[in-house]
Amino acid sequence: MKRRDFIKSTAIAAGGLLIPLDKSDASLWDTFFQKYFREMTPEEKKNLAKRLENEYKEKTGVNINIKTNEALPAVKFAYGLDLSRCIGCRRCVYACVTENNLSRNPQVQYITVLEFKNGEKWVSDLEESNKYFDHKEQPEPGHFYMPVQCQQCDNPPCVKVCPTQATWKEPDGIVVVDYNWCIGCRYCMAACPYGARKFNWAEPQVPSDQFNPNTHYLGNRPKFKGHVEKCTFCIQRTRENPGKYPACVEICPVGARKFGNILDPESEISQCIEKKRVFRLKEELNTNPSFYYFFSL
């Protein structure tokens, strides 16, 4: 045997060994050779969803539905947040955790509520903020609150740095992650100026009786260890006709959260932008967020 042939056959054998043959059913084969989501036909997307549904059922015995529907035409989502009203009660944080099947342990939360002392330097410098504030009742006198989540930038720095193109911006403005394509390098987390992306440091755990069965492939479907996830404006709720408001909007007890189609001049968010003085977080970075903060008072 020639030296070259020996190396070739050894390499092939080693490669073969990497596929665990004891579990090599069709599902594993499909996982290994899954195509890029954006290049799939609707039929392939459907099969993929079915496979993931079955995998979750095998693991937990619970039936879930994974949707793969595409963006609605002539829709561009935008979000508004009234800082005069927010009381920092964190209901949005846990409405989001519940709706999006976020890991309870290790803890993953998409929304971070920041607390500032009145008159403190902020916006340009969030260093003085406190995200671990602990009061019995909200709001604490002499403080104000600013919840931060994914700003769904129109010029997203996180998308630019992804080496596997596992994250991209959808036509309706939502920046999504394909968890099956993400390799967990966390470049996007370093690139994001808002700290909006979260990493699954260990196997995410959601009790199966608490699992929200209405899921989307690009949203709240079951997730795994070692990949990045983020707010998707509740894609499984909003990308429908008629579509519900995101969970954080629906739970807010002070009505500080506004959501809608920025292309519709009558939508709440368009009206906010037209009638109030809005600002976007860290505008100077040219990320062009779809998330508008404003003061109604």
């Binding site: 342990n105 290790p106 803890q107 993953v108 995200k131 671990y132 504030f133 602990d134 009061h135 709001p139």
Partner: peptide
């Protein structure tokens, strides 16, 4: 005048994210 509301739990600090108590409804 809007009345204060009870606050929901504080998020876990980075070294404690795996020591979170079980979630309850």
């Amino acid at each position: 005048k809007f009345k204060p509301l009870p606050a929901l739990p504080v998020p876990a600090k980075p070294l404690e994210i795996t020591k979170v108590k079980p979630s309850v409804p």
